[in-house]
Every structure is written in structure tokens, then in C-alpha cells.
Simulated scan of single mutants.
Amino acid sequence: MSKTNPNIEIVRGFIKKFWNDGDFECVAEWLTEDYVDHAYVPGNREGLLNMARILHSAFPDQSSTEENIVAEGDRVVVRLRMTGTHQGNFRGTEATNHPIDVRLYREYRILDGKIAEHWALFDTAALLRQIGAELNEQPACRIDKHKID
């Protein structure tokens, strides 16, 4: 009988308690003191909490379901399916009550039983389409040639 990787269990527990249950007070329990977030601004606990509050305000019934999870060394990568209902303002789009169903990836680095770093890749374009938001036609990355010279 194989044992479950303890780092996977840490990530599963954090996703359930923080993202799905909306227990934002649990960060002291799950995150290191010097936690770094590479997905949200600012790149620390504050950025993570800001994004979680935005998502929970716009999609109060949101829930992330694990589709796949892998661990190697101190890293855990999880593919999630987030579902919910658009019941609050999100990026300037008022509540539509449309259902959402989007995929996201999260990578965590675990240190001494706590999450030390986080990266995320979220299909924001799919989410915006599902709530009827206007997508900006401008490229995501523009280079200002005057600053290069």
C-alpha cells in the first residue's frame, strides 16, 4: 500500500480550506512567514488575500476541484477546475448570474510543512467570455520601442 505524499496533502488541505471554504484566516497555518506569491500583486500574502477576496466576492459559490496533482521533491503542481456563479462585480463586469467553468494550474513549493511559494496560470480569457465581459483586443504584452533604444 503506497503512502500519499505529505506535500500533496498540504496543498489539498490549503486549497480546500483557503480557496473553497474561504477561510482567509488560515494563512498563518499554511504559509511560511516569508511566503512569496509569483501570481498576484503584491507578491506576498497580501496579494494572495486580495485575489481571494476578489474571487469570493464575484463568485461566492466558487469551488476548485482537483483534476490532477503531481509532486516531485518540494514542488506540487495541481490542475484544477473552478466552477461557480457570477454574483458580484469582476473586473468591471457587474453580476450576470452566469455559471463559470474554467481551468487553472497552481504550483506550490513546500518548505518544512508549509507553502513557501505559489505560481498560478488561470484561463482568465475563458472566464471573461463566460460572464459576457468585453475582451480587450490589445496584445497582452506590448513592447515600447522607445524605451528599448
Rank of each mutant, 00 (worst) to 15 (best):
T85H: 06
H86C: 07
H86Q: 10
H86D: 08
H86R: 06
Q87Y: 02
Q87E: 14
Q87D: 09
G88Y: 05
G88A: 12
G88K: 04
G88L: 09
N89G: 12
N89Y: 13
N89A: 15
F90K: 03
F90W: 12
R91A: 15
G92M: 11
T93R: 13
T93N: 05
E94S: 10
E94A: 14
E94N: 08
A95C: 10
A95I: 10
T96Y: 09
T96D: 05
T96W: 09
N97R: 12
H98L: 01
H98V: 00
P99V: 07
I100S: 03
I100P: 01
D101P: 01
D101Q: 04
V102H: 00
R103W: 02
R103P: 00
R103S: 08
L104C: 09
L104M: 15
L104W: 03
Y105S: 12
Y105I: 15
R106N: 13
R106H: 15
R106L: 13
R106P: 00
E107Q: 14
E107H: 09
E107W: 11
E107A: 15
Y108P: 01
Y108M: 03
Y108S: 01
Y108A: 02
R109I: 13
R109S: 07
I110R: 00
I110W: 00
L111D: 11
L111M: 10
L111N: 12
D112W: 10
D112H: 15
D112M: 11
G113W: 11
G113V: 12
G113E: 09
G113P: 07
K114G: 03
K114R: 15
A116G: 01
E117G: 06
E117A: 05
E117Q: 13
H118V: 02
H118W: 05
H118Q: 14
W119D: 00
W119G: 01
L121R: 06
L121Y: 08
L121M: 14
F122V: 13
F122S: 01
D123C: 09
D123R: 06
T124R: 12
A125W: 02
A125G: 01
A125H: 04
A125C: 01
A126L: 13
A126V: 07
A126K: 11
L127A: 01
L128A: 04
L128V: 06
L128R: 03
R129K: 14
Q130S: 03
Q130A: 03
Q130C: 04
Q130H: 03
I131E: 02
G132P: 03
G132Y: 05
G132V: 05
A133Y: 01
A133L: 04
E134V: 10
E134S: 12
E134Y: 02
L135Y: 09
L135V: 06
N136D: 15
E137W: 08
E137Y: 08
Q138N: 14
Q138P: 00
P139Q: 12
A140Y: 14
C141W: 10
C141Q: 11
C141R: 12
C141F: 13
